[in-house]
């Protein structure tokens, strides 16, 4: 091993290039042969992998509230400048606050395609919203907290649901069609239950794309079985009995996971093994509003218990977003350990 190396030692650039498939074929072959016999260069390759892993493990910093507010104000200024320049009537209160914008976003998101208000109606709604101001926000918040059981029936029109807010003015604010529903929570939005597996797989940042593809394959078969058998969740409060169909359960627990959960053998992940906890965890993920969870896997990451959550990317169906979260994932603290966009299978 120390004598007559088949190739001089590789430098970091060469190993990094090899990793990206950038060497020409002859060089790549020689480099691979060398790596196969040279521990030192393999360690170099491992160290480069580690660099990659460390970059990926940089925590996701959420946008500070002050920055959000500043951006909103800047855009509001731009908006009123544009309106003034084009001779339109500038809104009396030109600052659509952070909350105003979010409330509008919720309203828009609830709109059905094909039945959207014409432009002038949207403009009328915008002006009305400025008039009713705070009450609109309150309404938005209430809607966003609405339970799955009630929001489904409140989708259409629903002027009566507006009465608690701004009275007559508020109902005037509803020409924009289906004004209810607000932010649907992950629980109710999934048409089909989210498959939950307990593979115990050791997730690695560098291998996430492959591992997520494998998980989604397994999840699809769990989902199929759930579709035919009506699998329930393990949560005592929501699942009437073992194997109960648990109508409306947002999760389909894989048989293995179910068994382990019932035996209390989920280890550190026990806390996440419950319908309500898991739902709260999914809702806590950054930017999860309006997105479907494709699969959950109870597993390990970096030597510790962790759950992998795969979310759809609504704006791009060619990728999915994978989150690795810790066992204590909950509202306000999702404990994101790692995150990656990976190609959709």
């Amino acid at each position: 091993m120390t004598r007559a190396e088949p190739f001089p030692h590789l430098d970091a650039d060469a190993v990094a290039d090899l990793g990206e498939d950038l060497l020409d074929p002859a060089e790549a072959t020689a480099a691979r042969q060398h790596l196969a016999s040279c521990l030192r260069c393999r360690e170099l390759a491992a160290a480069l992998d580690d660099v990659r892993g460390r970059l990926h493990q940089l925590p996701t910093e959420t946008v500070p509230a002050a920055v959000t507010a500043r951006l909103d104000a800047a855009l509001a200024g731009e908006r009123s400048a544009g309106a003034a320049a084009s001779g339109e009537v500038a809104p009396a209160r030109p600052v659509p606050t952070l909350h105003g914008a979010r409330a509008r976003a919720g309203e828009r998101r609830s709109g059905r395609s094909g039945s959207r208000a014409p432009q002038w109606l949207a403009a009328a709604a915008a002006v009305t919203m400025l008039l009713v101001g705070g009450s609109f926000v309150v309404r938005g918040l209430e809607l966003s907290g609405m339970d799955a059981a009630t929001s489904g029936s409140a989708v259409q029109g629903a002027p009566e649901s507006a009465t608690d807010g701004g009275g007559a003015e508020d109902s005037a604010a509803t020409p924009a069609p289906p004004a209810a529903r607000g932010k649907a929570s992950l629980r109710q939005r999934a048409g089909a239950p989210v498959p939950v597996l307990a593979s115990g797989r050791r997730y690695l940042t560098s291998a996430l794309p492959t591992q997520v593809a494998a998980l989604l394959g397994d999840a699809a078969s769990v989902a199929d079985r759930a579709g035919t058998q009506g699998m329930g969740g393990p949560d005592g409060s929501e699942s009437p009995g073992p194997r109960g169909p648990a109508a409306g359960s947002p999760f389909a627990f894989d048989a293995d996971a179910d068994l382990l959960g019932r035996r209390g053998e989920m280890g550190e992940l026990g806390p996440l093994f419950g319908t309500q906890r898991l739902a709260a965890c999914l809702d806590a993920l950054p930017d999860s509003a309006g997105r479907r969870a494709l699969a959950v896997d109870l597993a390990t990451y970096a030597g510790a218990a962790a759950a992998l959550v795969v979310l759809e990317v609504p704006t791009d169906s060619s990728i999915t977003e994978a989150y690795v979260v810790g066992p204590g994932c909950r509202a306000g603290d999702p404990q994101v350990r790692s995150r990656a966009y990976v190609p959709a299978p």
């Binding site: 959207r116 403009a123 759809e312 609504p314």
Partner: peptide, 27 residues
């Protein structure tokens, strides 16, 4: 289902913004 929940696409929002919708860009 996704369409019903998610509402307009990014492109639709941008088009609305260009057409004068005051809040599409914020969304």
């Amino acid at each position: 289902a996704r369409e019903a929940v998610d509402g307009p696409t990014d492109k639709e929002l941008l088009a609305r913004h260009v057409a004068g919708d005051a809040f599409a860009f914020s969304e």
